[in-house]
Design a protein around this nucleic acid. Structure first.
Lengths: 149, 149
DNA sequence: TTAAAACCTACTAAATAAGTATGTTATTTA
DNA sequence: TAAATAACATACTTATTTAGTAGGTTTTAA
């Protein structure tokens, strides 16, 4: 199972879109600066997010990305899925052929765990994050930091 | 966050101990054969499990490993912790310094997720696995396989 | 026409995981 | 007492993945 910088970056960037994308598209350069993520790496992530129709793009000056759907209808699990293959804790990708064609001793456990994680993450929408106290505080700090620089 | 073959092997091997260790220590060679895990790799994992006092060892012929405590009192989370550093989904290892000294936009989310996973896995004891229908079926199959070979 | 931005592809470096190899040491048993 | 067994220890190799870099092209607004 992988839950690594890639998935974290994707969710962070999508949340940035949800927070700042109200009036017009947001450029990756902006996100890169605010969230301190390499621009080129963001481009690779957004290629996948676009393929999965989580964002839409506007090319040319003043262009950028916006959410393809409402922040209410986009959940964290599908963002991670989009860039990260999947959140699956089994060794057999859920196929159940982990040991000599059958399941291994702990297959059921990892399957359970995967479901738990998926249930948890799919219950969290971008909108719900936007309204969290903890998130709002970070947004304020990031706004101050951008004024200074 | 890492939940990979290493943690899975460790839990599988510990469960094997819980299943077969009733009368005397179990050698890693046995576990290696039943669970199809490289012996040398198992030795490395058991070094950590021993350091973390989850198993105790008996050297010499007829020796092997046994659970250091009752299967009821050992849970899956601590096994993974023992071999795997930790099940932590944040990028800052929970420290909260993920962005310029403060927390990043999604820190709280990953912290929440880590707690969820930890709560789930620490609620599962080796004993509870031993009594699961899914596990018992695999044990039967593995017993048949060892007769054949 | 220029600049801004998406879009695309290939490459590199670093980290980690997984596995292999080669021993040494302790202890039981014949 | 010798041989076999199994833990214990360490170093090395290989493969994979991640994270990031580099160097472009295409589109489009100003």
């Amino acid at each position: 199972m992988r839950l690594t910088t890639r998935g974290r970056y994707a969710v962070t960037a999508m949340l940035d879109l949800a927070l700042h994308g109200a009036d017009g598209p947001i450029s990756l350069a902006d996100i890169s600066q605010r969230q301190e993520i390499s621009l080129s790496y963001l481009e690779q992530l957004f290629a996948k997010l676009r393929q999965n129709e989580l964002v839409s793009s506007v090319r040319g000056p003043g262009g950028g990305y916006r959410l393809a759907r409402s922040g209410e209808s986009i959940n964290v699990a599908e963002i991670i899925d989009a860039v990260n293959e999947s959140i699956d804790a089994t060794s057999c990708s859920g196929k159940g052929n982990c040991q000599s064609g059958g399941v291994c001793l702990t297959h059921h456990l990892w399957d359970d765990l995967s479901q738990q994680i998926h249930r948890f993450l799919s219950g969290i929408s971008l909108d719900s994050l936007v309204h969290q106290q903890e998130v709002r505080l970070v947004v304020l700090r990031q706004a101050e930091e951008s004024e200074i620089s």
